[in-house]
Each structure stands twice: as structure tokens, then as C-alpha cells.
């Protein structure tokens, strides 16, 4: 059994090399959220007022949410490569190798999360422009939040992509399942003034909690957050999301397509 770290990092490095060899992908995944952010940010600037947050512009409100969208898109585009790998034959070569099934999952997830993180860091450079400041502790907490969200999104993508045979089907699922998860996270609008049923969905949506732990460090001191039960609950749910996704992905990879048992046997 090869070492888990060596195999995971090798497969993750492959993801990065492939990503940076396709400049269109680099431009596409960063330009789309940027345009979204600027258009919606300036477009809603006049009409957006939250009770109690009157001094927050929509551009600023949407800022953590758009970075989460970048994580979502980046992770999803990275996991689409599972379908391509299966199609092209690369995946079967990995499956017959004496490697832990967890390493196969980790390779994809570390690769996807790293690519997403690099892009998010570019976005993070815009924080001072908005008048948002982060100390070292706050920065660590924000990046930690991105890592959890990245692992959460990429394992979700992994689970969806593993059994699929066409990338077109994956795009469809992404639009009706993954995008709504993000829309109902509080990224686009606050959770306060929505119908109760929608609010319930938002509360059990792990993406809401990931957004919470990414947004909070911009507005509170790290020490204050670590004693805030609201923040700690969101952190705990985000950790459960990421770890649960990894475990389920590993179980999925481990399952071999099985033949039907003969009748009476």
C-alpha cells in the first residue's frame, strides 16, 4: 500500500498542472464571479438596505458570498474532470493501482480546493478597497473557512460526478442542486426577512454555515468569535459537512459495480 500522502499530493499536483495548462479555465472561473460581483454590487447599490446594517453597501454584503461562489464553481469544474478521466481512461489506471481509495478522493479534493483557494486569494486582495480589514488571526479563520467550504463543495461534486457518464448531465445537476444551495445560503440576501419554510431550508443548508464562518471574521475579533456559540455551531456544521463528504466519497469509490446474484443462490 503506497503512502497516502504521496499518492494524494501526486494526484493533486496533476490537477493543478492540468488547470494552469488551460488558460481559458483560469480566466473563466475568476472572471465570472468578478463580473457577477461588480454588476450586482453596483446594480443593487441604491435599493439595498438591511435594518441594522445601513452602512453596509451591497458590494460589501455580497463580497464573502461571491468568494463562496468562486469556491463552488472552481470545485465543481474540478470535479467534472472525474467524468473526463473516466472517459479518457486515466481513472481506471488509478483504480487498479495499489492505492488507498481515500487517496483517490483526497487527490481530487486537495487539487480542487487548492485551485479554488488560489483564485479566492486574488479576490481577498480587494478587501482593503471595501474598507474591510483582517488581522493575522482573522485571515487564518477566513482561509480556514474557505478550506472547509472547498472540501465540502468538492466532495459534493465528487459524489455527484462519480456515477455520471456525461458532463452535460453534471451541468444540469449543478444548476438545479448546487446553485440553489449557494443562493439559499445568505450569499445574495440576508436570511432575516424570508418566508419561514425558506428560512428552514437555509438553516439546514451547510453552505449557510460556511458563509457564516467566512463572513464573521471581517466584522469581529477572532477572540470574540471563539467564544460566540453562534459562530462555533456554524464552524462545527462546516467541519461535519467536509468530513462527511470525504467519508461518503471514499465509500462511493470503494463500491465496485456488482453482478446480480443468481436466483435461489
Amino acid at each position: 500500500m503506497s503512502s497516502l500522502a504521496r499518492v494524494s499530493l501526486s494526484l493533486a499536483r496533476r490537477e493543478m498542472v492540468r488547470f494552469f495548462r488551460q488558460p481559458q479555465r483560469v480566466v473563466g472561473t475568476i472572471a465570472q464571479p468578478l463580473l457577477f460581483w461588480l454588476f450586482l454590487g453596483f446594480g443593487f447599490a441604491g435599493s439595498f438596505r438591511i435594518p441594522g446594517m445601513e452602512n453596509v453597501t451591497y458590494l460589501e454584503y455580497f463580497y464573502p458570498g461571491v468568494m463562496l461562489m468562486l469556491m463552488l464553481f472552481s470545485a465543481v469544474f474540478s470535479t467534472i474532470t472525474i467524468i473526463e478521466d473516466r472517459d479518457a481512461g486515466f481513472l481506471q489506471g488509478v483504480l487498479v493501482a495499489p492505492v488507498s481509495r481515500l487517496a483517490i478522493v483526497l487527490g481530487k479534493v486537495i487539487g480542487a480546493t487548492s485551485i479554488a483557494l488560489i483564485q479566492t486569494m486574488i479576490f481577498l486582495a480587494a478587501a482593503p478597497v471595501l474598507g474591510l480589514t483582517l488581522g493575522f488571526g482573522g485571515l487564518v479563520m477566513v482561509v480556514g473557512g474557505f478550506v472547509l467550504a472547498g472540501v465540502g463543495f468538492s466532495t459534493l461534486g465528487f459524489l455527484l460526478a462519480w456515477g455520471m457518464r456525461s458532463t452535460a448531465a453534471f451541468h444540469a445537476v449543478m444548476m438545479v442542486f448546487l446553485m440553489p444551495l449557494w443562493m439559499l445560503s445568505g450569499a445574495l440576501f440576508p436570511l432575516d426577512n424570508v418566508p419561514v419554510a425558506m428560512k428552514a431550508v437555509m438553516m439546514i443548508n451547510p453552505v449557510s454555515h460556511a458563509l457564516e464562518i467566512i463572513r464573521a471574521p471581517f466584522y469581529a475579533e477572532p477572540s470574540a468569535l471563539l467564544s460566540d456559540s453562534h459562530y462555533l455551531l456554524a464552524l462545527a456544521i462546516s467541519v461535519v459537512w467536509a468530513v462527511g463528504g470525504l467519508v461518503l466519497s471514499m465509500i462511493r469509490v470503494n463500491r465496485r459495480e456488482a453482478g446480480l446474484s443468481p436466483k435461489g443462490a
Binding site: Q92, L95, V96, R256, A258, G259, L260, S261, P262, A265
Partner: peptide
Amino acid sequence: LCGLARPST
């Protein structure tokens, strides 16, 4: 034989 499918029996 290469372990990608699990036989019925």
C-alpha cells in the same frame, strides 16, 4: 480480473 467489477458468484 482487474477488480473493477464484483462477480455474482
